[in-house]
Write a protein that binds this DNA or RNA. Structure first.
Length: 403
DNA sequence: TCTGGGGTCCTTTTCCTT
DNA sequence: TCTGAAGGAAAAGGACCC
């Protein structure tokens, strides 16, 4: 009999580990990744391009204490965390806690490169893989030769070994009957661990955990659960599903009940189409719609150009153009506008986004501006669509010129 | 001294049509 | 022309995730 065996693989401290591969001299030191968009290698190699990255002396790296400006920590090494700094903390606050920490900028090009590498290795071993961002995947072990041995442990070990040999990076794997439990399991034994969860492990292993450990229960849902005296997954499982539906709504209520009982039938999805693409930016200082009009306009146009370039490079067009504003008080407003036709043209996007901006309140100072294009379609599929001005007859004439 | 950027999905509200 | 119900699409907002 073959059991459904789903793995969740999570790279250990991915960004920091990639940086340490490039700069091994920083091993053991407090390092914080985040903040500005400077090109660090060039800064560091100024005046001496002959030396390798690993030869740059530690004393030449930029320090947190020298940083000024906005930004948050994306991730921090264990050595830095001991000072109380961690993800999502403002850099200015972190600089007070650990001024001597090395500050590296986020380098997505590098992370994507390593991401590609470890994912390629996985699919060579187990082809049914679902992407969950740069550093996480689900893998369906069910039909893979050897995927059932020791309930998946043997295959998990093989994948870990292959990834480490190729990249020098470690990861943690959880194997369980479904995605929900596999995701939880991958956290049980970090770093570089494997944990196996079987159906019968639900009560002893999962029920004592906080509800927050369920992927999909965030701070808001957790607070609401707590307000009803529900702290653990086990307590959630004991609640009447009818009460859950009444309290949390149809969909969420039913889902909470299923999740608490470890049930999840979602398949591992190997490919998916993007739904939207966007670009947004936080200003160095809050801008005023009237006073800083020129600056705002320039940023706005640039965001439209960037999102248009993203669409074109990836071969998509979209017809719902939207903007996002974050005010100085952190309130968010969005506006969008659907066009009659699909586009990836920066001018058209800019025009539609401009209409959206006109409908948004602009009294308060702005902290962030974003531009989004949704209702996406592959560019080649869009060519087959009728345009506004085409009659069905004209359309047929275009598609079937011989008729 | 606050709090990034790029996404997905869901719910509620609003608007339009019948 | 008004009123109301019903339903769908689009818009707006929010929660969540990496």
């Amino acid at each position: 009999m073959t059991l459904r065996r789903i793995a969740h693989l999570d790279m250990d401290a991915f960004y920091a580990s990639v940086e340490l591969l490039r700069y091994p001299q920083l091993k053991g030191l407090p390092v914080v990744i985040g903040g500005g968009r400077r090109k660090i290698d060039e800064d560091l190699m100024l005046g001496d391009t002959s030396r390798a990255l690993h030869e740059i002396p530690v004393s030449e790296f930029p320090l947190l204490r020298d940083y000024t400006g906005r930004g948050v920590i994306t991730t921090a090494t264990y050595a830095a965390r001991q000072f109380g700094v961690g993800s999502a903390m403002g850099l200015m606050k972190a600089a007070k806690l650990c001024p001597q920490a090395v500050l590296l900028p986020v380098d997505f090009t590098q992370y994507r490169h390593y991401s590609q590498r470890f994912k390629t290795i996985i699919t060579e071993i187990a082809p049914l893989m679902e992407n969950r961002g740069v550093d996480e995947v689900y893998i369906d072990f069910t039909g893979v030769p050897g995927g059932q041995r020791e309930a998946g442990r043997v295959l998990a070990r093989l994948i870990q070994k292959a990834i480490f040999e190729d990249t020098g990076l470690t990861c943690s794997v959880g194997v369980a009957p479904n995605k929900l439990l596999a995701k939880m399991a991958s956290e049980f034994n970090k770093p570089n661990g494997i944990s196996i969860v079987m159906e019968e492990d639900l009560q002893p292993l999962v029920w004592p955990l906080a509800c927050r450990k369920i992927n999909g229960i965030g701070p808001k849902a957790d607070a609401k659960l707590k307000s009803h005296g529900i702290e653990t997954i086990g307590q959630l499982a004991q609640r009447d599903p009818v009460w859950l539906v009444q309290t949390f709504g149809n969909k969420t209520g039913a889902w909470l009940h299923e999740a608490a009982w470890g049930r999840d039938s979602r398949a591992v999805v190997t490919e998916s189409e993007p739904v939207s693409m966007s670009r947004e930016t936080t200003f160095d200082r809050d801008l005023d719609a009237v006073h800083d009009r020129a600056e705002l306009g320039a940023v706005f146009t640039r965001l439209c150009e960037q999102v248009a370039a993203d669409l074109q490079r990836k071969g998509y067009v979209g017809r719902t153009i939207g903007i996002k504003l974050r005010y100085a008080d952190f309130q968010i407003a969005t506006r969008d506008h659907s066009l009659p036709n699909y586009t990836a043209d920066p001018i058209e996007i800019r025009r539609a986004a401009g209409l959206c901006l006109k409908r948004a309140p602009l009294q308060k100072r702005l902290r962030l501006l974003g531009v989004r294009v949704g209702s996406l379609l592959r560019a080649e599929d869009a060519k087959l669509l009728p345009t506004e001005t085409e009659t069905p007859h004209e359309r047929n004439a275009l598609l079937f010129p011989d008729d």
